[in-house]
Design a protein around this nucleic acid. Sequence first.
RNA 1: CGGGGCGUAGCGCAGCCUGGUCAGCGCGCCUGCCUUGGGCGCAGGAGGUCCCCGGUUCAAAUCCGGGCGCCCCGACCA
Length: 571
Amino acid sequence: MLFSRMLIPTLKEDPSEAEADSHKLLLRAGMMRKLTAGIYNYLPVGLRALRKVENIVREEMNRAGAQEVLMPAVQPAELWQESGRWNVYGKELLRFKDRHGRDYCFGPTHEEVITDLVRREVQSYRQLPLNLYQIQVKFRDEIRPRFGLIRGREFIMKDAYSFHTDEAEAEAGYQAMYDAYNRIFTRCGLKFKTVEADTGPIGGSYSHEFMVLADTGEDLLASCTACDYAANLEKAEVILPANNPAVPAATGPEAVHTPNVRTVEEVAAFLKVTPQEIVKTLIYETDKGPVAVLIRGDHEVNEVKVRNLLGVTDLILAGPARVEELTGAEVGFAGAVGLNIPIYADQAAAALGSMVTGANRTGYHLVGVAPQRDFAMAQAADLRTVTQNDPCPRCGGALDILRGIEVGHVFKLGLKYSKALKAVYLDADGAEQFIFMGCYGIGVSRIVAAAIEQGHDKDGIIWPMALAPFQAAVIPISVNEAAVVDAALRVHEELEAQGVEVLLDDRDERPGVKFKDCDLLGIPLRVVVGPKTLAQAAAEVRHRRKKDTAIIPLDDLIPHLKERISRELHG
RNA sequence: CGGGGCGUAGCGCAGCCUGGUCAGCGCGCCUGCCUUGGGCGCAGGAGGUCCCCGGUUCAAAUCCGGGCGCCCCGACCA
């Protein structure tokens, strides 16, 4: 491939619109361009990297026994109404009408379509299990797209759906995908971690996420340093220490005047107590009415856990007016005593023998409050977010809190969609049964960005060999010296003939310009052909990541490069 | 949707507060010369509805009103 003939519009300066490193580099390396917010053109080099990811995904999915299909991007509202998600999915679902006024959406995911397909075409247990996948454009009207390809609105996703006769078979299918995903991300050269994930309002018994570790990641995860426990922070469990320190019995609730003392820090300082002795009372609005959540002063509420415990989809902190209406006091003075909405307490707060709370009276707090004696709880449970200081819920070891980019998610769906859309099969006894389902997503375009987040330096991208748009670059120092040009052309031609993906920088540019662009593009192996080395019938080979250089005789050059490429792809 | 910022040549920006003499700079692009191992140098040149609409004014990139777009923080998020 000739550089001069390709559209590779590299930029010297960082575009002002980009913040994340992968976003800047994708633009600077001329791999993509923005069309509008969260929507990008893939340019030739970017597309090559994207295809690399797609092919790895495709190979491993096929190897795992899945079959590729391609479903429509545009979907009729009827299916979404049938599954009940037309009204649930929210504004993220891009909806529109055709010329006849019929409702459609641009698919953000394909459970409805695939289930519809399978319910029509699968009648017998003999046709199961079945795993169908596609690699396709999705659209989610994200509230705020950001970080380029990491959270775009339009993106490329591999989504797979498996269909099974029973739970055990579904588990096996889940495990097969789990294993395939590990192979995929390993082959992509990514440093990743598999974590337990929240199943969310979608339900299902369990799910795992595959996280690429990167400081710019939007997700937080807890990872045990001693055992293999790792979970999304939304999901990570907190265990109450068994040896809970004996707490002094409460002396009885006593109101204390605390003018303008609202936050935990202010209360602690004013009353000369520790945040651990204070309990925050958070008032939430839910679709089942208002509730109060009690959390110890030094802890943070985990709204996902609250949502799951209550079985609600809407959970919003009440505004100042509503708080006053429910507690009779301004924000900052809410407390459990005398509150007549359901009270849910985090287990650590509930375990306190004596606590400081708001008094439900502006300017007052209560000290010596005892749970049960002074107020009733609807339930005490694990409702807070783990911290670095908490022990691993499995082995008691130390936890690390890490950042990650979610690149894959495997889900056991169970019967949710087969029931909603009546996807059934006949078992060996001729009885009608619902089909067990699983679904499995991979953010294909997001992987490209994630790989750059993990692989870059001040000079540009550092691709893993498996994702590199070109495996090698050939740079003639000058295009005006016949001997140099001839040698470079021969190397380029021979590499292409041998199946190496190579870019020949045939531009009439100074060497520095070519080196800079080569580094920016992140091509793993760089072959420089110049008069110095040519005099010894050799060329210089440099590795983008290792930054080592070697002078290789021209006669050995092709095998040398092929060997290094092969080693990096398979070693 | 709340908070903040931005919109001037392909890209990065200055000019705006204090209206006129303000269409500017760097990079990139084109032509020529020169140079050739880390974004060379010199000379010449092309390229702009100053986001849009309206208003104020003798006069608007600049002031005022409205709109649109984009970015960041947050809320949100299979």
